[in-house]
Design a protein around this nucleic acid. Structure first.
Lengths: 255, 255
DNA sequence: CGTCAGTTTGAGCGAGCTCAACGTGAGTGG
DNA sequence: CCACTCACGTTGAGCTCGCTCAAACTGACG
């Protein structure tokens, strides 16, 4: 495992948006692309990764239909992926938190099918895909890991399909809250107390609901003492109750 | 292109379920995994592919939670992928027609997350994944193509997410019909006249609708002279009208 | 002939949408 | 400092699309 590497080297600059930190030093390397790579191999991956200035809230990382060049790892902040429908509506297809990879939709046709927009100040690592392909040939572990990442995107998209097709408004919103909670926990943040990075409109769009319904359901959850809501601050008070509402067995959430 | 290969070699056995046909001889090799591979490379791919007896209607190709070993290319017939929810309901996440690849959901955790069930007598090519990985390292074109296939699965899942989240029952059903039409056309079959391989229940499950709604919408389409329906036989009478209902620009459908 | 799975059609209901009003807080400019 | 705006969120009232429940039809098969 590579977790020991992160703490053994210098980590003087603490700001999460800092573009200087290499993969070997990154606190996310246990859940990001470098997972299970050897030390030397992490350095080789590190060499192809480009780190630019942070994105401001609302700024595009890429736009649908642009030529595909790279996939991106979120370093800090949150990015949403948005699909533009034929009649001009937007569909949010995913929220990407630190350590998660986006842009893989662009591989199929060498054009992104989604747009990616920062929901708050966010820093990303750009991974030029052609160089990742080359490196994958030399490092079978990396090839396998990237296959797994894409497969994970497929399974989480299919989870969302199921959610949209089968579940009520309450179940959808509970499932999203639990998903964010779990992903925070995996990043060693609080599973019960966090700030939603996205607006009610984004939540509704993602879950196929109106903002009014999102608002009403959150109010209802609060009334039932499942959680407390203050604008975007969420405090889960009754985790098991929330899981019961989401129809999820007590141990897991989606993604 | 490899299309010329198919017709230049012997194709004495015409039955689509025939397990003897190699990739080089297969009439689907222009849209299946061998696409854009060189002749010699197709033979190397062919060596790792296993072809068993056809599946009967209702038979499982694999089940959710089984250890992942292989991905599968559909050779004939139709396979549906089904996700089992926590509370035991089934969600159809995709229909796979000849030339299409399924099973990629299993890569992430070395277990299938879906079950795969034959909707009619169907033959598949089994592609052991570990051998595909090895070959991908030796054939960069194959690696790239498999990345593209996975990406295509992601984009088509996201199309479905958008459909479920934003579109009415009529739009969803029109979109599905157009998708099947397009995919038939790509396989050099009629785009306007075909047999639905799946039941109303499967359609409804896939599209997040009840069987009653599916039936009513199809009746309405027939009443409006968009198509004629006779059990599972579909005849599209007004393609542009159907595309208008689906909110799709005249040239394309999903997947 | 009965049975059974799949499908069609009708009648009434309800979850979530639409429309509308109001509340809140941050920013801006006098 | 207040007045104003603007984005975002909350809450209420009524409506609608698709669901539920129920009945009847069709064709395949023993």
């Amino acid at each position: 495992m590579s977790e020991t590497i992160a703490s053994s080297t210098n980590s003087g600059t603490k700001c999460h948006h800092n573009p200087q930190v290499s993969c070997g030093d990154c606190r996310l390397n246990a859940i990001c692309l470098p997972i299970s790579l050897h030390i030397d191999d992490i350095d080789r991956l590190d060499e192809i990764i480009q780190r630019g200035r942070p994105l401001q809230k609302g700024e595009h990382l890429y736009r649908a239909n642009e030529p595909f060049q790279s996939v991106y790892a979120v370093r800090s902040g949150t990015i949403k992926a948005v699909n533009i429908t034929n009649d001009g509506q937007e569909q949010v297809t995913g929220f990407y938190l630190p350590g998660e990879i986006l842009g893989m939709d662009g591989i199929a046709n060498n054009r992104y099918t989604n747009s990616a927009v920062a929901l708050e100040t966010a820093a990303v690592c750009e991974i030029p895909f052609s160089r990742l392909e080359d490196l994958s040939i030399q490092l079978p572990t990396l090839q396998r890991h990237f296959f797994q990442l894409m497969s994970k995107e497929i399974t989480s998209d299919q989870q969302l399909i199921t959610l949209l097709s089968k579940n009520s408004a309450e179940e959808r919103i509970a499932a999203l809250l639990l998903s964010i909670s779990t992903r925070n926990h995996n990043r060693h943040l609080s599973a019960t107390s966090f700030r939603l990075p996205m607006s009610r409109a984004d939540i509704g769009n993602y879950l196929g609901l109106t903002i009014e319904t999102v608002s009403r359901v959150l109010s209802r959850f609060q009334k039932n003492d499942l959680l407390s809501v203050d604008k975007k601050e969420i405090n889960i008070l009754d985790m098991d109750g929330l899981k019961r509402v989401a129809n999820v067995e007590p141990s897991c959430a989606d993604q």
